[in-house]
Design a protein around this nucleic acid. Structure first.
Lengths: 184, 184
DNA sequence: ACCTGAACACCGTTCAAGT
DNA sequence: ACCTGAACACCGTTCAAGT
């Protein structure tokens, strides 16, 4: 029943990659109160403590997950397009990431000190694009990012109502376009 | 050392009011991961289980707290003023409540199913005011509320930097005015 | 009606013991 | 290097026992 105590044979044992994969899976389905070390370990058929050999901390785990999630936001930035279009596509992908994993977003904001710099690249690119269009780039950065975050929270509130959630996506797009139209 | 087992003498024992007071206190200072039943009980010099005689649940406790916090938002609505001014003052008070208790806000959003209707009165009043000013009242409700929420989250991120937090308040006001100016 | 103590099922994390 | 088991300090919550 119980596993041997020592180091497992080569090829057994757990990878950091496998941990992150399982964590994302738990995050998507479980929804509950987030990924716990113990539940994650059970998912991987391993004792909780073995995770600490690959991840230093629970918040380090969350940071690793969010790094992975937000990395995809920076891909495919419609590089050839006009600034407004690039801003729009960047925000839509950011909003998508944030509202696909609302529990992760909440966890990050619950202890923000540990997550400085995770979304740094995104805001850096956004502000560079905004500076082309307006003198008050920082103000509009605040508005657009805050709006994405707040909307993602409202999203979370409709988690159990998929039909309303779908219309929420289009409402975000409407609001975003309304804001962008007033930017110039 | 240990208290007697039975019902305490008249005047001893705990009130629901005292529980909420202590909970708000813990919320303000502790900041940490929110108010736990056990920490709250310790604060009141009582066993955790005695709380369940006055509050049915941990989420019921949070709901009671948030009812109290948000009730003050509806006071003093500058009733004589123009709609824009009333909207502005309402949102500023709402933003204040939300960012004074970011941990509460996060807790509420973490399990939103239990909190439908808490902020209902606020959105009702807001939308009534918005309908005077624009045909797209619901769209602007989304924008303004989401903005307040998102900004409150960003606020939380600066919890340990009071100086930056102070300038954040004025930045919220700037952004709010920018949005309201584009409403008409 | 209202409190206590013991108990159950969870957390994150440390530490020593194993291979 | 990497896993286990036991342990510590936390959670929320239930249930029986006390007055």
């Amino acid at each position: 029943m119980s596993k041997p105590r020592g180091r497992p044979a080569r090829g057994d044992g757990i990878t950091r990659e496998q941990i992150l994969d399982a964590a994302l899976l738990l995050l998507e389905e479980g929804g509950g109160q987030g990924v716990s070390m113990r539940a994650l370990a059970a998912q991987l058929d391993v004792t909780p403590m073995s995770l600490y050999h690959h991840v230093s901390d629970h918040t380090a785990l969350l940071r690793a997950i969010s790094d992975r999630v937000y990395a995809s936001v920076l891909d495919d930035d419609a590089a050839g397009e006009v600034p407004v279009v690039r801003i729009r596509s960047l925000l839509i992908r950011y909003h998508g990431a944030v509202s696909d994993f609302p529990q992760l977003t909440l966890a990050i904001f619950a202890q923000p000190a540990a997550f400085a710099g995770v979304t740094r690249d995104i805001t850096d690119r956004l502000i560079a694009l905004l500076e082309v269009l307006t003198k008050e780039a920082e103000l509009w950065l605040d508005i657009l990012i805050d709006h994405a975050h707040g909307n993602a929270l409202a999203f979370q509130a409709l988690r159990d109502h998929p039909r309303q959630a779908a219309s929420m996506r289009t409402r975000y797009l409407q609001a975003l376009d309304q804001l962008l139209a007033r930017l110039a």
